[in-house]
Computed example of a mutant assay.
Amino acid sequence: MRIVILAVGRARPPFADDCEHYLRLLRAKARVELHELRDERRLRERLSPSAHLVCLSERGRSFDSLGFARWLDQRIRAGRDLFFALGGAHGLELPEADEELSLGPLTLPHQLARVVLLEQLFRAHKILAGEPYHY
């Protein structure tokens, strides 16, 4: 199973450095890809019809870290690739998404949302491995 993050726009420092940091940590635990795309049209071209598609949205369901880890475990057990779609500064509407998730009630800059998603994916993998996840 792959975890693919499709994000509109390029991350700039310091967010780009944080993304690389969490990608390095995650790659030891999972097959994770981050694709930065110029616009929403290019994002839609990269979607896989066989993957479980999650759109990050303020309207989506939110979790605490343990709940997110349990949710991720269910997705892993389902065996389908997992695609996360993140919009740019103006958000993203994906009616074809299997579900919507929220990173919380605060509005985050789209570059920071990317970092938060990567960090939570890393934390979830630590939880699932039974490793300490507060650091």
Rank of each mutant, 00 (worst) to 15 (best):
L6F: 10
R10D: 15
A11D: 10
P14I: 11
F15G: 00
F15K: 01
D18V: 12
R24K: 15
L25G: 13
L26R: 05
R27N: 09
R27H: 08
R27S: 14
K29P: 00
E33F: 08
L34R: 07
L34W: 07
L34A: 04
L37M: 05
D39W: 08
D39F: 10
E40S: 12
E40M: 05
R44Y: 04
S48R: 15
P49H: 13
S50L: 12
V54G: 08
V54S: 02
E58N: 09
E58F: 05
G60S: 01
G60W: 01
R61H: 14
S62V: 03
F63A: 09
R70C: 04
R70D: 14
D73T: 00
D81E: 09
L82H: 03
F83C: 07
A85H: 01
L86H: 02
G88M: 09
G88T: 04
A89R: 08
A89F: 01
H90P: 00
H90I: 00
G91D: 09
G91M: 04
L94P: 04
P95M: 04
E99F: 02
E99Q: 06
L101Q: 05
G104D: 13
P105L: 10
T107E: 11
L108Q: 12
R114W: 07
V115D: 08
V115C: 11
L117Q: 03
L117Y: 07
L117M: 06
R123H: 06
A124H: 07
